[in-house]
Design a protein around this nucleic acid. Sequence first.
DNA 1: AATGCGGTCAACCGCAGCGCC
DNA 2: GGGCGCTGCGGTTGACCGCAT
Length: 238
Amino acid sequence: MVRQPSLKKGTWTPDEDHKLTAYIMRYGIWNWNEMPRFAGLQRSGKSCRLRWMNYLRPNIRHGNFSREEEETIIRLQKQLGNRWSAIAARLPQRTDNDVKNYWNTRLKKRSVILENNNSASATTSPSEIISSNSNTDSSTLLNFPTTDDFPGALEPAAGFSIPVSNGNNTVVVDDIYTMKDNFVSSENYWEILCFLEQPLMGESFGCESESPNFQLWHSHSQHYYCDPVDNFWTNPLV
DNA sequence: AATGCGGTCAACCGCAGCGCC
DNA sequence: GGGCGCTGCGGTTGACCGCAT
């Protein structure tokens, strides 16, 4: 009798991330339950899907919720309840898991205060209340520069400190190692590229440099940006 | 230096919805 | 209509980290 290898749980390793990303880039998403086996992963399909949807998928931002986003979450949560996927759909580049975590860890308490303040003063805007609230987490008050603020600018690299305008001097950008966001570091870019040029599933990649995907990738290499319009990642074979 | 505690967030679990047969 | 498999969603857990003592 062939024993089914036990499925791994817990934190994903960089190697597992690479395997999953490379597989989806090459073959697309076809069946979450079958994919792990073909991708050489000892993970459940659910685990792979979750990892892809919440972390590896391109065009995802983590942390540094803007004040506008906070207000949107608070407003929509009031309107829709805990329908996190619906709320996340209204927040570009945010995942339902991120929105849910952010709500549970930060906004939930603040929302209660907001309610109290609103009942006390119906004329005060949410942002004013957030700003004036002494219990407010200082991290929510940072005017964190985004790529929306500086179109075409490079995203700060992982581990770098950047100046903020809340009185503290710097904030450390979250450590990322690959494709966590739209942008990846040049080091990771080449690391990924090297990985993708390795044979997958025992077959050669052949002339990857002539493939549409490769050219798309290089066409964005200035900013290492994966354009969602290209549908490059989610459906690489089209 | 060691320990405790609270906050954060990645990941798991269970369930509901949907489509297919 | 019912069973089955797959996917998506929301609640919850547990590991990790920073800070206070």
